[in-house]
């Protein structure tokens, strides 16, 4: 008798979910956000179909404000693994030059990400989209289903969530409706790192500490990734050893000071960490109910 470890069981569950989704939908897509969760999700999806190719494309909803290292990592990954990568940038945002500085973080996020995602899903007619969200990230996510049904307008209705029993998932939807599937629902941040470590999964180097140019803005360290970042007269760019626990648009992602340059060191820091990873995301700084509102509006 062999005892399966928790990582074995999590991996098997995720692969099962990914295969069920592919089998029960017409046009699935993997929402690839370039972060560590996306890296794990991609790795699991490739395992699920090995030795075949991924039977669905990857979609990156780009905001033009992602860290440059994320974009180069994304393109390299797609090229090396021979993946079908779709990149969508909301054309309205491009035209209006939407950015976090003049329009504020919530308009920026809503227009680029929420609206951009809806546009892309409609454009390609995807009826099922994989996301890397985990239940441990935030209180309201604890109750998210693995398969989450969205209306034709991409709305999430907490009252229409389907009960999920045993390993039986129901991905059936009416014309126009779609399903968001979260194969990593039962993973924790630590599990993700352990799995990356054991499976040697490549991740964006921004997760590891390196000297980077940063400014301190309302108590948070923001990396100056390019010259579009406006600086106040009293702001000084300094080089500090920092890393990121979560990746997004560089002006909205806080760095933490760290000396962890390797994965074991990152895990060690995390185990003694005193803040949850979402803390670095500036969009979550309002009340606890805010994540839920965003979800109802269609934010991923």
């Amino acid at each position: 008798m062999r005892t399966l470890s928790h990582l074995d069981r999590l991996e098997a569950e995720s692969i099962h979910i990914i295969r069920e989704s592919a089998a029960e939908s017409e046009r699935p897509v993997l929402l690839y956000s370039v972060g560590k969760d996306s890296s794990v999700l991609l790795h699991l999806a490739r395992k699920a179909f090995h030795p075949g190719r991924l039977p669905f494309p990857l979609l990156h909803v780009d905001t033009t404000w992602k860290f440059r290292e994320m974009i180069s990592f994304r393109d390299r990954t797609a090229r090396e693994l021979g993946l079908n990568l779709l990149v969508h940038q909301n054309p309205e945002c491009v035209a209006q030059g939407i950015n976090p500085f003049t329009h504020g973080s919530s308009v920026h996020t809503d227009m680029w990400k929420t609206q951009g995602l809806k546009q892309a899903l409609d454009k390609y007619g995807f009826d099922l989209a994989f996301g890397g969200a985990r239940r441990d990230e935030e209180r309201s996510r604890a109750k998210e289903r693995v398969f989450s049904v969205r209306s034709a307008a991409h709305q999430w209705d907490p009252k229409r969530q389907r009960p999920e029993l045993w390993q039986l998932y129901n991905a059936r939807v009416a014309q126009g409706e779609s399903v968001r599937v979260f194969p990593l629902s039962n993973w924790t941040e630590l599990d993700v790192w352990l799995y990356i470590y054991h499976e040697r999964i490549p991740v964006v180097p921004l997760y590891f500490a390196a000297p980077r140019p940063v400014v301190r803005r309302s108590g948070t360290l923001i990396m100056v990734d390019d010259d579009r970042m406006p600086l106040a007269p009293d702001e000084r760019v300094t080089s500090r050893m920092v890393r990121f626990r979560t990746l997004g648009c560089y002006p909205l992602t806080g760095a933490i000071e760290s000396t962890a340059t390797s994965l074991p060191e990152v895990v060690a820091e995390m185990l003694v960490a005193t803040t949850s990873e979402r803390q670095g995301r500036l969009i979550d700084k309002d009340s606890s109910g805010s994540m839920e509102r965003k979800k109802q509006e269609g934010y991923f």
Binding site: T3, L4, S5, E265, V267, A268
Partner: peptide, 24 residues
């Protein structure tokens, strides 16, 4: 609590050990 020493060797050992932790 998760008792971890931050020395790299210990942490690698911890990481390897995590492969034997099961799930309830």
């Amino acid at each position: 609590s998760q008792t971890v020493d931050t020395g790299t060797e210990q942490i690698e050992e911890y990481l390897r050990g995590q492969q034997n932790v099961d799930l309830l």
